[in-house]
Amino acid sequence: MLSLLSDENFNGDIVRGLRLRQPSLDLLRVQDVGLREIDDPAILAWAADNERILLTHDRATMPDFAYERLVRKEPMPGMFVINDRMPIRQAIDELLLLVDCSEQAEWKDVVLYLPL
């Protein structure tokens, strides 16, 4: 199972839907781990230190920070960038497909844009 971390502004309805559909899901929110209002590089560093794939809607800056980590040869456990215009049900379905059908190591150093 994948270990996930949702960004501060990630849609709470998606988080709730994921947890309802898969109660055993290993998903933390930035708010749950004391990272509220922390800058993006610090969130990515925490995700790397804790081996969690980041869920974000932030297409503007977050992927660039992830690629900067890769250029500096710093760990980056993966990032799923979910289009914020994507229907909630579709986002939940696609994320659960990734959770159920892949392994954590497959997403190391990968930035994946959803929808698939």
Rank of each mutant, 00 (worst) to 15 (best):
M1G: 10
L2G: 01
S3M: 03
S3C: 04
L4M: 15
L5Q: 04
L5E: 04
L5H: 04
S6R: 05
E8F: 03
N9W: 02
N9D: 14
F10P: 02
N11E: 11
N11G: 04
G12I: 15
G12W: 02
G12P: 02
V15R: 10
V15L: 09
V15M: 07
G17W: 09
R19K: 13
R21I: 09
Q22T: 13
Q22G: 05
P23K: 14
S24A: 11
L25C: 10
L27G: 04
L27N: 06
V30M: 13
V30F: 04
V33M: 07
G34P: 10
R36S: 12
E37N: 13
I38M: 11
I38F: 07
D39W: 03
I43Q: 11
L44C: 08
L44G: 10
A45D: 14
W46V: 07
W46F: 11
D49F: 08
D49P: 05
E51N: 13
E51Q: 12
R52P: 06
R52L: 05
R52K: 15
R52F: 09
I53H: 06
L55P: 02
L55I: 07
H57S: 13
H57T: 14
D58L: 08
R59C: 05
A60D: 04
A60N: 06
A60C: 02
M62G: 00
F65S: 05
F65V: 09
A66Q: 03
A66L: 03
A66T: 01
Y67I: 00
E68F: 00
E68Q: 06
R69L: 00
L70T: 00
L70Q: 08
V71E: 04
V71Q: 03
R72M: 11
K73Q: 12
E74C: 02
M76N: 00
M79Q: 03
F80D: 00
V81R: 00
N83Y: 05
N83H: 08
R85P: 00
R85D: 12
P87A: 07
P87H: 05
P87Y: 04
I88E: 11
R89A: 13
R89N: 08
I92Y: 06
E94R: 03
L95F: 04
L95G: 00
L98E: 12
L98F: 12
V99A: 11
V99S: 06
V99D: 07
D100S: 11
D100E: 15
S102N: 14
S102C: 14
E106G: 11
K108A: 10
K108F: 02
P115S: 12
L116Y: 06
